[in-house]
Design a protein around this nucleic acid. Sequence first.
DNA 1: CCGGATCCCGAAGGATACTG
DNA 2: CAGTATCCTTCGGGATCCGG
Lengths: 120, 120
Amino acid sequence: MEKVLPDCPVETTLMLISDKWKILIIRDLLTGKKRFGELKKSVGKISQKVLTADLRSMEKAGLLTRKVFAEIPPHVEYALTPAGYTLKSVLEAMSKWGEYYKENVYYKENDYALEAGNRQ
Amino acid sequence: MEKVLPDCPVETTLMLISDKWKILIIRDLLTGKKRFGELKKSVGKISQKVLTADLRSMEKAGLLTRKVFAEIPPHVEYALTPAGYTLKSVLEAMSKWGEYYKENVYYKENDYALEAGNRQ
DNA sequence: CCGGATCCCGAAGGATACTG
DNA sequence: CAGTATCCTTCGGGATCCGG
């Protein structure tokens, strides 16, 4: 890897998983290995091109493995590496905070403005 | 037409803080309130426009407060709300993972990749 | 000092068609 | 089924100027 990691470990993490869909890919792999088509369905409205690109990038980063079965039709399985799996702690923190926010901010305080940082 | 938060709490969190700079803004506010100019320096290469926009968006979402002092020259302070502060758990998880990654994956990349790839 | 108003660009992502 | 290959669109975000 020619590129140097940032000093701040938070930025390191951002560099690796802050793309639009990567966290969701990890979320869906935390429950076990999945085939390309399964991921495409479970992640959401991701396109094939982007899913392929993100999976390749995460493979290079050592977050997941790609296993090709020599079959017809093709069969490819993706699974988290130990390093990828340890992202579970980050996802769990995000999940808990999301629930907290929904109950304590979104439903109680003033309505959350829609244009603000919304991604579909 | 009311827009609703996603069912998945992870996606809720993503919706609110997955923009390029928001996590770093929170990182820098976790240590206490800061003025606009201080944030601009500490966050990194963020532009004024984007910093302003992100701060406004996060204010609307209830993550931080904006306090304007009636002074000349202007003086504005930003501070996390309790909801914003609880994101600390997410940031800590990201920080720990970043350090873990640097030591256990980045510095041993080739070994790791081979091992993970050959394991089956 | 803070930040609004414009203009602009490039990269990330989407749509669609094709293939081993 | 799991990709490539193209083409196209969007929009996040940078640069600059201005103003209270």
